[in-house]
């Protein structure tokens, strides 16, 4: 499954929704974010909507759709991150989404509203667990 497809993000959502026990201990998360994969031929933008212990919505959106935050990076950066998840069962080292966003040189956290950006931090562990779900999917470039 290619990571710059809506099917992949939907699969991450399905993985999360099938295992609420993994998220229960982390608490509810209510936020809407966009994962932006920059690639030749046009960027891929997936909006993900989290509500309580579920990822309630995944859809491909155009640029400019308002969300709490966006994570923007080139395809190879996203791929490195998911490769690390696959290799280790979860993101490690500098490939955790928090480390990537903190340094901001490969995948950047952007948003117009600091309160929206705060949600990336407030629900970071949930987002990390969501992305780590790729370890249980078959992922390819």
């Amino acid at each position: 499954m290619k990571i710059d497809t809506i099917a992949f993000v939907e699969a991450l959502a399905a993985e999360m929704n099938a295992h609420p026990e993994r998220y229960h201990i982390l608490g509810h998360a209510d936020m809407v974010g966009t994962m932006v994969v920059q690639r030749a031929g046009g960027d891929f933008r997936a909006r993900v909507t989290f509500a309580e212990l579920r990822c309630d919505g995944v859809d491909e959106v155009e640029a400019g759709e308002p969300t709490d935050w966006s994570l923007v990076g080139p395809l190879d950066a996203w791929h490195e991150m998911f490769d690390d998840v696959l290799a280790n069962g979860r993101a490690t080292g500098l490939q955790t989404i928090n480390s990537l966003a903190l340094l901001g040189d490969r995948i950047e956290l952007v948003g117009d509203d600091p309160m929206g950006l705060d949600k990336f931090s407030r629900f970071n562990q949930t987002l990390q667990a969501f992305l780590d779900g790729a370890a249980r999917l078959a992922v390819s470039a």
Binding site: G93, N98, M115, D118, K119, S121, N124
Partner: peptide
């Protein structure tokens, strides 16, 4: 990764405190 987890968990809490303070 141990320290990363520590800092990530703390960051979640601190972001909540900032959200209260800002609003």
């Amino acid at each position: 990764d141990v320290e990363k987890r520590i800092l990530r968990m703390c960051m979640q809490d601190e972001a909540r405190h900032v959200a209260y303070g800002t609003m």
